[in-house]
Amino acid sequence: MTDAASEPTRPGPGGTARPLRPEPPAVRDAATNPWGDVWRQFRTHKGALLGLGFLVFVTLFCLLGPWLWPVSPGALDVRNKDLRPVYHLLWDGSARVSWSHPLGSDQLGRDLLAQLIAGGRVSLAVGWTAMLIAMLIGTLVGVLAGYFRWLDGILMRFTDLVLALPILPLLLVMMLLFRDPLRATFGPATGIFILIVTVIGATSWMQTARIVRGDVLALKEREFVLAARSIGTPARRMIPRHILPNVLSPIMVSATLGLASAIITESALSFLGLGFPSDFPTWGKLLFDSTDRMADFPERVLWPGLAISLTVLSVNYIGDGLRDALDPRIRGR
């Protein structure tokens, strides 16, 4: 992988074999815009492209949905409760369906489509924010522990401590302790959002911290870091310039996993009744609310479940593609 001989520029060494002035490799002279290269590489990853497409679709669906489908997710329509989705007509002519509830309605007559839209907003917001918080803490702890020897012991023992805590009971205690003060300060919806996001973020950064620390430790011994030290680059510029770009891959991977687990943890919290209030739909809560009548109404589990899985899957693929695209060694081959 090291030599520049992998490009098909000229057929042979030619008459004057000057190994130090070879013809430029097929890599484009990318002095203009490095992000152009990243995008070009990203496009070659089919899964990542599909994932990006789906993520954009889901995001737009959640953001613009309320305008396209202006039905309140909390509106009770008791006469039209327990409707099946309209596509049931395809194989079951006697199914109770209504075009006013294309995906059906639940036992209280709430519209499933509107609930999916509203739930997606909350779930995506929680997932992204919690993941970003976790990545921020994890990367910070990992880089500091890996780079500064004197911080390593303290920070990693702290990480071990948090890892050793039983997460679910901890979440419950935190919820009980902080729910009411936060509600009082920020209002019920924002308060609980802040609480959930912080709680999930603060309990899921440890894996990232460990992975990043290991990578930084290995990276610190590489010669280019030594070269930067011989130039006189201080630590505060060494880390953003040399360390962070080179630990981007593991961060990216754990970020995609982190988004997935944040959405799922939020569902679990909602299931335990400690998440958002009951009139506040999220994908996870829709899923858990419908489990007891799953056999009769599989679509109520299917749609939120599908939304969660596909979002997580697409984010994973995007992370995969981004990791490749951001690595100049993989790029361009």
Partner: peptide, 27 residues
């Protein structure tokens, strides 16, 4: 200044040639 042994390891793989040579100038 120093010239290192392993030219593969002594250049940051995520920086362009210009970035690498410019680093001492930036500093």
């Amino acid at each position: 200044q120093m010239v290192f042994q392993d030219p593969q390891a002594s250049l940051d793989p995520r920086m362009t040639v210009e970035g690498i040579i410019r680093e001492p100038l930036d500093e």
